[in-house]
Design a protein around this nucleic acid. Structure first.
Lengths: 347, 347
DNA sequence: GAAAAAATGGGTAACGTTACCCACACCTGG
DNA sequence: CCAGGTGTGGGTAACGTTACCCATTTTTTC
């Protein structure tokens, strides 16, 4: 019951003398190490409670584990990241591990700083969510710290990957729009920001798949892409750009729900109604997309599952030092709501 | 340029021998301490770069500063928190401090665990965003670690407070609705979760002010409150509850934009249009509220400013050990958009 | 020109914990 | 009864850094 605040902190030595044992004994009890009798264990436990001892994190870190999982998020504004985190927290719930989050930011310089911060703090494992850094950089980190990467479609021998099947997801969305009769289907994408590996980034895959599916349906000439950002403002700007075309698209596939919400605003500003004038599909099936007044058709991928899986893989890596790396892919599904419909003039 | 990965890590001793100086000298250079000539400083700097030395965080923490600011967020799903964090990051940008975020969760047990995690990691300062814990608990933490609390309206001698003037904000919103001619104005609030100090929590103040303003306009009999949560789902559930009343309210004041979005869904589900059938006002002026298709009337409070200020106060506390505590209040303003209008039947 | 002050550099003992070893005492089996 | 195990406990040297002190040299002041 020791109060916080000033005063010298309670150390293992205090506990030891209070329990009439050695510091080694206390350390052993704390670590559940071999070589302690039940009697001693109880005596030490009692002393710990009585003195309100708490292990000194930094001192522990100097010798071994920190019981900390570091999570790198690009930015906390995206509600899909919240779902991922929910899954992670759920999985970490029963363990002694604590998650700490750092924000990577928009460029890879600031992301590097954030990752370094985690490495410097000797986290036992790192989960990188949609990182911008190059694969080489990620492997550099993974060589020193157990790492799981969520987002990019890469297989690396050094870290595990968790990602949605973005190719399948994008195909579902674009295919759905084309099946409805749309020909001028445009895409809201994300501009490349990092200097790393554009081809494996999820936004690149969604865009590439969009292009492929369009071409496969003989609509190569109708391809129109605005590459801004997966944010509300990015989607709004991009949609305005797309709507300025003549003839304007009759459907828009946004690479993320957040961008789709921005597109909704742009459509409203342009005096167009959804889906009568323009159909709109998103990606992620965020909570807001399901709300009745928006009713956004979108691609669902189980963010909680992704977070849970990432955490599980990370814990395995931390504990066992798994030999081979794992790649986990989540199959997406299409959720059709009221933001998509047949085109007005199927000219 | 030292690569990461295996191998013994580069220590201050390696740098020292490489630069032909003592470890003390290197330490002094690293800390910008007194007693180093320019020549020596440069020699050490060169050695540091050449060997790719990085300070060992844990070893530092054992002796002094960690250059870490801990941020406690209830959950990362609320976009307003993202704004606060933007302000904080901006203010921290130029400094050597790194922010790490932990999620507090919905109950004060899990919040306690999260706070303990920060304290155990010896962060130099803590920013608690809308904490659930009791004031006594906060002061216990603040006694040991410089602390700034964002949200609750409390003055404590031990920590600084930053908050919006929720009373003024709620008065603006409710007053606006009443001025439009509404009489049956309902409120979407948040249920008390912690066991601490309900009266000073911002949601309690918003609700209390709603009740007061209603009463002041002779509308005490029309008071209707649904206390759920400041989330989309909470707002949706609460709004359904309110709309089930007979006669139903003609206006709803939601304590947070997130809840207002949920209310929009509920209104849509009930076949009611906004603002023709029911007017709706929110709080926070999140980015989404400004989007054209939502056009939510809401109370604007500068979240970035709050984050910046909180960070500034915290840095002051960390550096100087300010004697007195500060309370900073941000004045809100009303942003009228298209979700509010006069009632149809001003019976 | 001597005394005092300032500037510069280094030695070393912590900080709290754990891993590795060693020292017993007690038990087993031949 | 002794050799070898096994169970139980403690001593102690790290881990990498910094704060405090002391020892020089250089500069300033009277």
């Amino acid at each position: 019951m020791g109060g916080a605040g000033r005063g010298r902190r309670v150390t293992i030595a205090d506990v030891a003398s209070h329990a009439q044992v050695s510091t080694t004994a206390v350390s052993k009890v704390l670590r559940n190490a071999y070589g302690v009798s039940t009697a001693m264990r109880e005596r030490v436990r009692a002393a710990i409670d009585e003195l309100g001892y708490r292990p000194h994190h930094a001192a522990r870190a100097m010798r071994g584990r920190t019981f900390t999982i570091g999570v790198l998020l690009p930015h906390i504004n995206n509600p899909f990241f919240a779902e991922i985190l929910d899954g992670l927290m759920e999985q970490l719930g029963g363990t002694d591990y604590q998650a700490i989050i750092v924000q990577g930011g928009r460029d890879d310089t600031s992301e590097r700083r954030a990752i370094d911060a985690l490495v410097d703090r000797q986290v036992d494992g790192i989960l990188m969510v949609v990182p911008l850094s190059s694969k080489a950089r990620l492997e550099e980190v993974a060589a020193g710290t157990p790492t799981v990467v969520l987002g990019p479609h890469e297989r690396s021998a050094l870290y595990d990957s968790v990602h949605g099947d973005d190719e399948a997801g994008a195909e579902l969305a674009v295919g759905h729009l084309i099946a409805l009769g749309h020909r001028r289907v445009a895409h809201l994408g994300q501009q490349d920001l990092g200097h790393g590996r554009p081809a494996t980034m999820l936004h690149a895959i969604r865009e590439r798949t969009y292009r492929r599916v369009m071409a496969e349906h003989g609509l190569a000439d109708e391809i129109a892409v605005a590459a801004t950002a997966y944010t509300e403002e990015g989607g709004r700007r991009g949609a305005h750009e797309l709507l300025a075309r003549d003839p304007r698209p009759t459907a828009i596939f946004a690479g993320a729900d957040l961008a789709a919400f921005g597109a909704l605003a742009a459509l409203h500003e342009a005096g167009l109604s959804v889906p009568a004038d323009v159909s709109l599909a998103g990606y992620d099936n965020t909570r807001a997309a399901g709300l009745a007044h928006l009713a956004l058709t979108t691609v669902d991928q189980d963010g909680t599952l992704m977070g849970r899986t990432a955490a599980r893989l990370l814990l395995e890596r931390v504990a066992g030092g798994r030999a081979s790396s794992v790649r986990f892919s989540v199959t997406p599904s299409l959720v059709v709501r009221r933001s998509t419909g047949p085109p007005q003039d199927a000219a």
